[in-house]
Amino acid sequence: MQEILSTLPQVLLDGLTLGAIYAVVALGYTMVYGILELINFAHGEIFMAGAFIGTALLFGFVDIGLALNWVTLVLVLIFASLLTGVIGVGIERVAYRPLRTAPKLIPLISAVGISFILQDVVRFVAEYKTGNYIVTGQTIFENKIAIPAFSVGGYEVHASAIKSNTLIVIGIAVLIMIVLDIFVNRTKWGIAMRAVAQDRATAALMGINVNKVISLTFFIGSAIGGATGVLYAQQYATINPFIGFILGLKAFTAAVLGGIGNIRGAMFGGLLIGLLEVFAAANLGILTGGALGAEYKDVFAFIILILVLIFKPAGLFGQAVKEKV
């Protein structure tokens, strides 16, 4: 108990950071699922591509002698999200749109295929350029802010530290979520998006250009996924073409947890999964007396997924919907 409590501040901070990343990636899954009922397996890879694009850009900036500061970060974020947004729209056009009336299995297979293609293309480029597909990039904000040790109620709490980058990750993630929430609920296009999600045929009858709305959904989802990739690379420095796969799975878990299609739910689910995972990684060893260690943290996330699907398939807040017969 003492041990768990003493590391709690660090665990909470790390969990929040990871959770913020899951939350934003989960948004992409949830938006696409809401509108197409398709698990966009490639979304994790879009995130990964964003991380690589951001890293490549920063290398480029260094090459031409630009100083790395918050201006460059903003530039990189904008550029990477535009590019991943376009990739997302392209994927939808090429690999999903022709399959809209096909049996449900077929677009899923196409999505798995796209995700493999992206992984390998990025791997190839990275390996071609750097000789290795594992890349360690430039981090802009490295200084740490220390939180001193203190004690509550007789319990000793260890000192913890946050990278200033952590604050940036959390800040930008929260900003993205707020802007998206406003967009979806208040703007004309956002409302069109919700209309298409609810009933595509009727929305079309009301004069909404369904294809445009779907493209827009993919653009936004992918753009914020890509931006999150940039933040991830900043936070954890080392990236590889396969980071999107497991992370995507967990983000999807977050989306299901929050009720798939539910944007605010996805944010909540992401934070929860992030916190749980970091907590498990830090404390599984302690809780199981050393039998299981941090290497089981991914297992932990999957078990949550399975439990949620069994007991609360509509998510923590959702209501079960039945297919119309």
């Binding site: 690999a95 022709p98 196409s110 798995v112 295929g113 796209i114 493999f116 293609i117």
Partner: peptide, 10 residues
């Protein structure tokens, strides 16, 4: 494999 999956699906 990715190309095969997407190609066949479409």
């Amino acid at each position: 494999f990715g190309l095969v999956l997407v190609g066949i699906a479409i």
